[in-house]
């Protein structure tokens, strides 16, 4: 197996794929649906926002490839307790990390850093960012389906 594949499918990613965290619906929460036409996969992100814009709970449901599922799972873990603005800023750093060229130093994004290997696989960037795009739609409580296309 190539080193790049090992980078992509790290143990933590496989673990989050097998046992996704916060994999549930939240009743009466803001939510949005995301769609990746490439995989044919759909996920729904649920979100409750408290006073001061703090994300008090976040979860997701749906089916997807290992990268999109692990990314969604890791996203929910890393934004709970943050404000919506902080989550948005994290998304921007995450997006830069997974789209940077191979030589760019990898930003330390905590657990999310395990997804840095996606940068070697440009066609998989959309898988890793699907949950985040869907989160943004859920924040806006847009009730349409967001697509990665």
């Amino acid at each position: 197996m190539s080193a790049e594949l090992q980078d992509l499918y790290q143990e933590m990613i496989l673990d989050h794929n097998r046992r996704p965290r916060n994999f549930r619906a939240i009743a009466d929460a803001r939510h949005a649906e995301g769609y990746n036409p490439l995989c044919g996969d759909r996920i729904t992100v649920y979100l409750t926002v408290g006073d001061g814009g703090t994300i008090t709970d976040v979860s997701f449901q749906g089916s997807g490839c290992a990268i999109s599922k692990a990314s969604a799972s890791l996203m929910t873990e890393s934004i709970k307790g943050k404000t919506v603005e902080e989550a948005q800023a994290l998304f921007e750093r995450f997006q830069r990390m997974i789209t940077a060229s191979g030589e760019t130093p990898i930003d330390d994004l905590g657990k999310l850093t395990v997804l840095a290997g996606v940068r070697q696989f440009p066609v998989r960037v959309k898988c890793a960012s699907l949950a985040w795009h869907t989160l943004r739609a859920a924040v806006d409580a847009r009730n349409e389906v967001v697509s990665t296309e």
């Binding site: 499918y9 995989c39 044919g40 996969d41 990268i67």
Partner: peptide, 22 residues
């Protein structure tokens, strides 16, 4: 248990071109 898209990515690194999707 393995999503077709992950199958496609791994096969590609082995030189094998298939399609995954709808």
């Amino acid at each position: 248990d393995v999503h077709p898209h992950d199958v496609g990515t791994i096969l590609d690194r082995e030189g094998v071109a298939i399609r995954a999707g709808h």
